[in-house]
């Protein structure tokens, strides 16, 4: 019987994002050459919010982009029916510091696909990974540079990130026993 618990409420999400924005600027030693790229779907609104926070603090105007990794997945043969491909729109990446933004980091396969796709668009100087939730369970040697919160989970659990732009409210919920 699946159980749903709220781990972060709207306020906690806001605090985490504020801290992540500061960390991004620290790790990049400023905003020069920084590009925020959100992974479809929920990474996109998160990247937008981080841009707003950073621009406010630093008086900058960070370029942002959207990346849909559907066509770069390594499991295209096994997931069906066909996942719908979303929009990919990227600014110039050559020589930039690309901060890839996503809601949840789990097996690491999404990020691997994102790295492959970025490489097809240009040659960034550096790529950083920024996620709201790191839930462990990596299947590839991938690490996040900036993490909002670390939530230990087990196989069969699911972490749902809700954002106002898509779901009407901000929250992070843990569903235990989501899958038998």
């Amino acid at each position: 019987m699946p159980t749903r618990t709220e781990i972060l409420d709207a306020k906690a999400v806001g605090r985490a994002l504020a801290r992540m924005a500061t960390e991004i600027v620290e790790r990049c030693r400023g905003t020069e050459g920084v590009v925020l790229v959100g992974i479809q779907r929920r990474g996109v609104p998160l990247a937008e919010r981080l841009k707003v926070l950073i621009d406010q603090a630093e008086q900058s105007d960070l370029p942002t982009g959207k990346l849909d990794i559907t066509l770069y997945r390594d499991d295209l043969q096994t997931v069906g029916p066909r996942p719908v491909v979303g929009v990919t729109e990227l600014p110039d990446l050559d020589g930039r510091i690309v901060v890839v933004v996503d809601d949840v980091l789990y097996t690491g396969r999404t990020v691997r696909a994102a790295l492959d796709e970025c490489a097809d668009f240009g040659r960034p100087r550096r790529i950083l990974l920024c996620v709201l939730i790191d839930r462990g369970g990596r299947e590839l040697p991938i690490q996040a540079d900036i993490v909002g919160a670390a939530v230990p989970t087990e196989e069969g659990d699911r972490v749902d990130v809700l954002v106002t732009e898509l779901d009407g409210r901000d929250a992070v919920e843990l569903v235990r026993g989501a899958r038998p």
């Binding site: 295209l76 096994t78 069906g80 996503d102 699911r158």
Partner: peptide, 21 residues
Amino acid sequence: LYLLAGGTPALAQSAGRAEDK
């Protein structure tokens, strides 16, 4: 080509789960 190439209907049942992040 993309739509025909992958994803069998049988495995559509597991499409209920969230994407592996």
